[in-house]
Amino acid sequence: MGLLDLFRRSTPSASVAKERLRIIVAQERSQRGGPDYLPLLRRELLEVIRKYVNVDPDAIQINLEREEGQEVLEFSVALPEKPRPQGA
């Protein structure tokens, strides 16, 4: 380590790790116990949407929620900001 490094303050990588893990673990937990077809469904929906709008793979959220005996498949797509912002 050079002397100059002592004066350089970098972003603490541990907090980056923690934040990334917090998100991915929450996402994986929400999918856990759900039907095995969810990842495939997500991929196929993404392909269909991409025929019309160029969206990021992580712009699609699929959640399966169980409420009072029924299951709700919640699906949201964040569209890119161009040409003007639109809700999903």
């Binding site: 603490p12 990588s13 541990a14 907090s15 790790a17 923690k18 893990l21």
Partner: peptide, 10 residues
């Protein structure tokens, strides 16, 4: 302590 590794608490 240097912020390079997640802590027990994390």
């Amino acid at each position: 302590a240097a912020g390079e590794m997640m802590s027990v608490e994390d």
